[in-house]
Design a binder for these strands. Sequence first.
DNA 1: CCAGTTCTTGACTATCTCGTCCAGAACGTA
DNA 2: TACGTTCTGGACGAGATAGTCAAGAACTGG
Lengths: 196, 196
Amino acid sequence: MARPRSFDEAAVLRTARDQFWETGYAGTKVDDIAAATGLGKGSLYGAFGDKHALFLRVFDHYCSEAADGTRRQLEGPDETAYRRLGDHVHAIAESVVADRARRGCLIAKSTAECAEHDEAVASRSRQLFHDLQQHLTACIAGAQRAGDIAPGADPAHLGGLVLAVLRGLEALGKGGLAPAEIRAIAETALAVLPKP
Amino acid sequence: MARPRSFDEAAVLRTARDQFWETGYAGTKVDDIAAATGLGKGSLYGAFGDKHALFLRVFDHYCSEAADGTRRQLEGPDETAYRRLGDHVHAIAESVVADRARRGCLIAKSTAECAEHDEAVASRSRQLFHDLQQHLTACIAGAQRAGDIAPGADPAHLGGLVLAVLRGLEALGKGGLAPAEIRAIAETALAVLPKP
DNA sequence: CCAGTTCTTGACTATCTCGTCCAGAACGTA
DNA sequence: TACGTTCTGGACGAGATAGTCAAGAACTGG
């Protein structure tokens, strides 16, 4: 038998995620991650490969969590679909407002920095946005069946619109828009969805 | 008298802008900018100060241009305000679609990377977003006076919503959403604005 | 308790990167 | 033309940075 690992892989990935989140991909040094996790660089390289592989591992996991969380918030019976949609939009707005350190969203930061040159990042974020739109669309379709949103509108288009608004809130929050404005935009977005 | 400059300051700033745009702040090396502009580092440092000062100069100018361009597209008589708003939204959508290299927007990239730690970047982007919302709000108010948008709605809220959608389109374009979806979202956003 | 395997630590290398500095060049003026 | 001033080009130094490596540690099956 071999010597067992002395660290918790998930915890190390969380710490690495926080580092990349705070300083971006190019701005993060492997030594910083080593110091933050307490691991030697040998262990880090042995367990995760190089900096890029580690980043991809972190990014992929974060995307999966984001998609799962959204799915859980949005899925359910048609009767409460409209309420779930509203809750979700409000939750995003509140998380943007609550982020006083303006850390923003790792996905937004990573795609902005890396998607152009890193196909792995680009395709993962493409997949994520597709999943998010699917979940929103399904929820909106449920709200339409329940009679809370006009049945004539294309739910996929409305889902795309809501997704754009949510990503926009994130961007504006990073840019420092006041909490009241963030909340007002979320309210307005919900208010303009066509009613039956 | 002293030796005159042998370079065009505006051209150098454009080249530096393209470098920061392509590789981000942390990812851009001063030597890259020197090579791209053909200047020696001595000239670069002498004319613009250090890397950070140069970046701020570039970023500030880009923000000013963005605000001016938006203002020019949106200002005008009430009678054509609604059309100008639609044209502007379509123009942004088309620019996102046309950006096949997925270079995205320098503002989005810079705020995502730097706003958290760099107060100068944060306050400049805050100012820009404020200006953009003002221009959108003024245009929407004009469309309301002309009877093209429901007069009851708060134009500032609608302006904020449109701004969020536009920023969201930019983010989703970076993430690789298909052109048809980008265009559909822009159409949907215009369609849900309340009519009289 | 020994052997074989994998893990850990941190020193080490090779390269990069920011910013400085200086010798010479290009001006206008006296 | 000689001079003072500013600009140019690139060599240089100090420190950072990604990734490697070797010596020893921890573990278990036999």
